[in-house]
Computed example of a mutant assay.
Amino acid sequence: MVVEKATRTYRMSRRADAMEDTRRRITEAIVELHGSIGPARTTIAGIAETAGVQRHTVYRYFPTEEDQLAACAAHFWGLHPRPDLEGWQAVGEPAERITNALKQLYAFYSEVEPMLVNSLRDAVEMPAVERALGSMAAFLEDATSLLSAGWSPARGRKRFVVAAVRHALAFDTWRSLVREAGLSTNDAAKLMATMVAAAKTTP
């Protein structure tokens, strides 16, 4: 009786491990495809082929598009965490704070570029993708508020500082400076920090 119980427990454990392995392989397949061809071009057949499973297995674990996107986002951002806002806040001087923040953010963008390019492109036609990007948008809004503080701008210049910070934080700004203009991450960060500093006084 004890042996039978131990055998059942062992089999259940192995089955749970096999299910978790299958879920992981499907999730990694979704991440790979979203990063290479984008969510809009990713199909159940493509996921199944990449993961080495049957189509019905994909549906069993991730029955909806939202389920697939949620799994992809959780896995991908777990591997590529966004910069730490609390670490930025610990830097008291605003010019130093935004320079350090932009260096970290731009390095982060270089890691996640393919996924963001595809996701932002496909979000236009896929509301589910736009919703999945909501946490990134919220992060950038929080970062804008944090990095806009402490500048003591001239009267009426606060909105210019906020606009400059928001522009500096944008993914498209990084791509323009680094990918198109050929600046290094550090040089791009310094340039944008200088722009933000100028925004507090420049008419």
Rank of each mutant, 00 (worst) to 15 (best):
R82D: 03
G46K: 11
A29T: 01
D172P: 02
G134Y: 09
T27M: 02
L69W: 10
L116C: 09
A90Q: 09
G150S: 06
S135L: 06
V124W: 08
S176N: 13
G87W: 09
E93T: 13
V53P: 05
E180Y: 08
G134T: 12
I44D: 11
L183N: 00
Y59M: 07
W77M: 14
I47H: 10
D84H: 09
R60T: 03
W88G: 00
P203T: 10
A74C: 03
V178Q: 01
A95I: 05
L69R: 11
A132G: 04
D187K: 13
N118Y: 03
L147M: 07
A18G: 00
Y109V: 07
R131P: 01
S135P: 06
L79G: 12
R24D: 14
R41I: 00
R82E: 14
W174M: 03
V117E: 15
A70L: 13
R121F: 11
A188T: 07
V129G: 02
L33F: 03
P114V: 05
N186C: 04
D122G: 06
E93C: 04
V124D: 13
A95S: 11
L183V: 07
E4D: 15
A51L: 00
E93R: 13
A199Y: 04
D122N: 12
S152Q: 11
D122I: 05
R24L: 15
T173W: 08
A107N: 05
A189N: 08
H34K: 02
S36L: 01
E66C: 03
G35V: 04
C72Q: 14
R175K: 11
A70V: 14
Q89F: 00
A40E: 08
L120K: 12
S145Q: 12
A143M: 04
Y59F: 12
M192W: 01
M19E: 15
R41F: 08
G150F: 07
S110V: 00
R25L: 12
G182Y: 02
L116S: 10
V117T: 13
D172F: 02
E125Q: 11
P94R: 06
Q54L: 14
K200N: 06
M19K: 14
V117W: 11
Y10C: 04
R82C: 02
R179Q: 14
W77K: 01
G156N: 08
T7S: 11
S119V: 01
R60H: 10
V165W: 06
S148Q: 03
N118F: 08
E141T: 12
G150E: 04
V196M: 07
T144A: 09
A170E: 06
H75M: 09
M12E: 15
M195F: 12
T57C: 02
T22S: 13
G46A: 12
K103T: 15
P94F: 10
L169C: 07
E66G: 02
D142L: 04
R41V: 01
P127L: 11
A95R: 10
R14W: 01
P81W: 13
L33N: 05
G46W: 02
E66K: 09
H75N: 09
H167W: 05
W88S: 01
E111V: 03
A189P: 06
L146S: 08
D67S: 15
Q104R: 06
Y59K: 09
Y106C: 05
R41A: 14
E141Q: 11
L102Y: 10
L33W: 03
M195R: 09
Y59H: 11
L105A: 05
Y10F: 12
S145E: 14
E66L: 07
I37W: 02
M1F: 11
L140H: 09
A101T: 08
